[in-house]
């Protein structure tokens, strides 16, 4: 028996909004410790990893490890039926071929349940090595979304250059060039408005705008985002999911021929 109840159901709705454009289908691995999802996009350029800790749920029970393969478009359609303030419960029997979503209004006066068929997905699992990144940039998630959106007007790629002076995002194309520089903030009233740069060595890497823009669909999950970079390895874009976990996007760089 698997059962996970989340009073802050809107978090699960936001997680789906953050992955459904990138992934058509994916497996949710349910274990005693929580729920994880790892999947590559169709072109194998990026990888999404979602981690939801068991302690983050208001009720969590997973008697046996369970892999729930889901069509994410279908899951998203079902979660659209939940109101933002609904309590969401996911339930499945051991070895079941369906999962049930239960939505309860805060007053408990309306209860809906939706059953969805599970899929058998044969997905590659990748081992992600622990890495000490040369640069870790923390910035407001809305600012990052704005930068990606604005620079997408100029070209297909964004160059992210991190040095001790700050971080520079650049794009170039037919209409011209755009550069956005952010310096580390010296003092801020609110922690989530801060730009914090931890740098061991300067790094400059180039990434596809299309993917960065898809990652920013996670913006409603968290006021801050972190970008981790090292020379010649994938970028990690990480958002926390309330207090219950995090979503990480790994993006392979573009390399000059």
């Amino acid at each position: 028996m698997f059962e996970a109840r989340l009073v802050q159901g809107s978090l699960l709705k936001k997680v789906l909004d953050a992955i459904k454009e990138l992934l058509n289908e994916a497996s949710w691995d349910c274990a005693d410790s929580g729920i994880q999802l790892q999947a590559m996009d169709n072109s194998h350029v990026s990888l999404v990893s979602v981690n939801l800790r068991a302690e983050g749920f208001d009720k969590y029970r997973c008697d046996r490890n369970l892999i729930m393969g889901m069509d994410l478009t279908s899951m998203s359609k079902i979660l659209k039926c939940a109101a933002n303030d609904d309590i969401i419960t996911m339930k499945a029997q051991d070895n079941a071929d369906t999962v049930t979503f239960i939505f309860e209004s805060p007053s408990q006066e309306k209860v809906s349940d939706y059953e969805m068929k599970l899929m058998n997905l044969d997905q590659d699992h990748l081992g992600i090595p622990e890495t000490d990144y040369a640069c870790v940039i923390k910035l407001p998630s809305g600012e990052f979304a704005r930068i990606c959106r604005d620079l997408s007007n100029f070209g297909e790629s964004i160059v992210i250059a991190c040095s001790k002076e700050g971080v520079k995002f650049s794009a170039a194309g037919d209409i011209g060039t755009g550069n956005i520089k952010l310096a580390q903030t010296s003092s801020v009233d609110k922690e989530e408005e801060a730009v914090i740069i931890e740098m061991q060595e300067p790094v400059t890497l180039t990434f596809a705008c299309r993917y960065l823009n898809m990652f920013t669909k996670a913006t409603p999950l968290s006021p801050q985002v972190s970008l981790s970079m090292s020379p010649d390895v994938p970028l990690v874009v990480e958002y926390s999911i309330g207090d219950i976990g995090q979503i990480q996007y790994f993006l392979a760089p573009k390399i000059d021929d």
Binding site: V45, L126, P234, F250, L251, K254, I255
Partner: peptide, 14 residues
């Protein structure tokens, strides 16, 4: 022109 790398050329299958 820069070419797009694939993510599975960095991480190994497990």
């Amino acid at each position: 022109k820069a070419s797009q790398m694939r993510i599975d050329s960095y991480f190994t299958s497990i």
